[in-house]
Amino acid sequence: MSQKVTVKVDSRALALTNLNKVLYPDAAFTKAEVIDYYTRISPALVPHLRGRPLTVKRYPNGVGGMFFFEKNAPAHTPDWVRTVNLPAPGSTKDREEIDFAVVDDLPTLVYYANLAALEIHVPMWRVAEDGEPLAPDTLVFDLDPGAPATIVECCRVAVLLRDALAADGLEGYPKTSGNKGMQVYVPWDRGPGTSDYAKRLARSLEDRHPFVTSVMAKKERPGKVFIDWSQNNPAKTTVAPYSLRANRIPTVSTPLRWEEVEACAAPDELVFTSADVLARFSEHGDLFMPPGA
Score class of each variant (00 low, 15 high):
Asp105Pro: 06
Ile227Trp: 11
Val261Met: 12
Thr237Arg: 02
Asp105Lys: 07
Ala113Thr: 12
Val102Gly: 11
Tyr242Leu: 00
Arg12Trp: 04
Leu270Trp: 01
Ala217Trp: 01
Met182Trp: 05
Asn20Leu: 00
Thr238Cys: 03
Ala116Asp: 15
Ala113Val: 12
Arg50Glu: 13
Val110Leu: 14
Arg200Ile: 06
Cys154Arg: 01
Gly181Ile: 02
Trp80Glu: 07
Pro290His: 08
Ala158Asp: 06
Pro145Leu: 11
Leu16Trp: 01
Glu171Gly: 00
Trp229Ile: 01
Lys218Thr: 03
Glu260Cys: 08
Pro210Asn: 06
Arg50Phe: 10
Gly172Glu: 02
Val140Gln: 10
Ile98Pro: 03
Gly285Asn: 05
Val46Trp: 12
Pro136Ile: 07
Lys21Arg: 05
Pro74Met: 05
His48Ile: 07
Glu96Leu: 13
Phe69His: 14
Asp94Phe: 12
Glu260Leu: 05
Leu170Phe: 09
Ala166Ile: 03
Tyr59Ile: 09
Lys199Asp: 10
Thr213Ser: 12
Pro192Arg: 03
Asp286Cys: 05
Lys218Gly: 00
Lys224Tyr: 10
Met124Ser: 12
Thr238Ile: 11
Glu260Val: 05
Pro133Phe: 12
Gln3Gly: 15
Ser2His: 15
Gly169His: 09
Arg200Pro: 03
Ala263Cys: 04
Arg52Gln: 10
Ser204Trp: 06
Lys175Val: 06
Asp26Lys: 13
Thr254Lys: 04
Thr108Asp: 13
Ala166Trp: 01
Val271Ile: 11
Ala15Cys: 10
Tyr242Lys: 00
Cys154Thr: 02
Ser282Thr: 14
Ile35Asn: 04
Pro89Leu: 11
Ser177Thr: 14
Glu269Trp: 05
